[in-house]
Design a protein around this nucleic acid. Structure first.
Lengths: 118, 118
DNA sequence: ACCCATACTTACTTTTTTATTAGTGTGGTG
DNA sequence: CACCACACTAATAAAAAAGTAAGTATGGGT
C-alpha cells in the first residue's frame, strides 16, 4: 500500500491529534477519499457486493475501492462477508460500530443536502 | 496556493460527489487537514486571534494555518475580523452558518471521544 | 537608522494520495 | 484448452497536499 514515513511531521501531527481530539478521531475513520460514499450506500442498502459498490461509486477505481474497503474493515466500521463460492461472492455491510454513526451521518447528510452549492 | 488541475480525474470525481451527495459536501467543508481543529477551538472560545490559534494547534505551520483559515472564510464557515490596528489585530469566529454545525460537531466529538484508540 | 509586533506570503522541497493499466487465482463451461 | 466470472493486487506515473524556511508590510518606539 501507500507506505508512509513513520516520522514525518505530517504523520506525527496526525497521530497526535487523533489521540487528543475526538473530532479528529471521528474524521480519521470516515474522512478517507471515498469512505462516506461507501458508508452512505451501506446505510441505505445494508449489504452490497464489491461490484455493486463499484457501480454506485461513479468514478472510483479498483485500487481506491479495494483500499478504502480494506481500511474500513481494519477500522471495524465494515464487515467483509466472504461466501467462499465460485465465482467469488463477497458482501460488505456496516458493523454495529459502523452503524453507531448512523444518527450523526444522517444529520450530516441532511445538513449537507440543505446547503448544497448551486 | 496549491494549484490543482481543473480536469484531473480526481478533481472531476470530487466535484461530482460534492454536488450529488450531502455527506460529501459536508465533509468538503470540514474535512481539510486542520479545519475541525480550528472549528473546535472556535466553538469553545468564540473569538481567537491568528497567534492564539497557532498556539493551540500544536504542530501546525504558518502556511497551513493561513490556508485553512482562508478556505474556511471562503466557504462562509468563519468570519475574519480585522481591527485595522497597529500592530495588526485579527480575530476569527464562526459565522452563523458555521455555528449551525455545532450540534453535529458536538456529537462527532462525543462519539470520537467515546471511541478513542488506546 | 534599527528593531519590534502581528498576521500573514512566497518559493521550493518532500511526502502522501490517487490514477492508470495490467495482471492474479480458480472452478466451471463450451 | 480457451474463456468467463468476480474480487481483488501490483507497478508505475501523475497529481495534490503538506513541510520548511525566509520574507513582506507598517507604524511606533529607542
Amino acid at each position: 500500500m501507500g507506505n508512509r514515513k513513520e516520522n514525518s511531521t505530517n504523520t506525527i501531527n496526525e497521530i497526535y491529534w487523533k489521540e487528543h481530539c475526538g473530532l479528529s478521531h471521528t474524521l480519521s475513520l470516515i474522512g478517507g477519499r471515498w469512505k462516506i460514499n461507501i458508508i452512505a450506500f451501506l446505510l441505505h442498502e445494508e449489504k452490497l457486493r464489491y461490484n455493486e459498490l463499484k457501480e454506485r461509486l461513479v468514478g472510483i477505481s479498483e485500487r481506491m475501492l479495494a483500499s478504502q474497503l480494506k481500511e474500513l474493515v481494519n477500522d471495524g466500521m465494515v464487515n467483509r462477508i466472504d461466501y467462499e463460492q465460485f465465482p467469488p461472492k463477497v458482501e460488505y455491510e456496516l458493523t454495529t460500530f459502523g452503524q453507531s454513526l448512523k444518527e450523526i451521518l444522517n444529520q450530516m447528510e441532511d445538513w449537507g443536502q440543505a446547503n448544497l452549492p448551486g
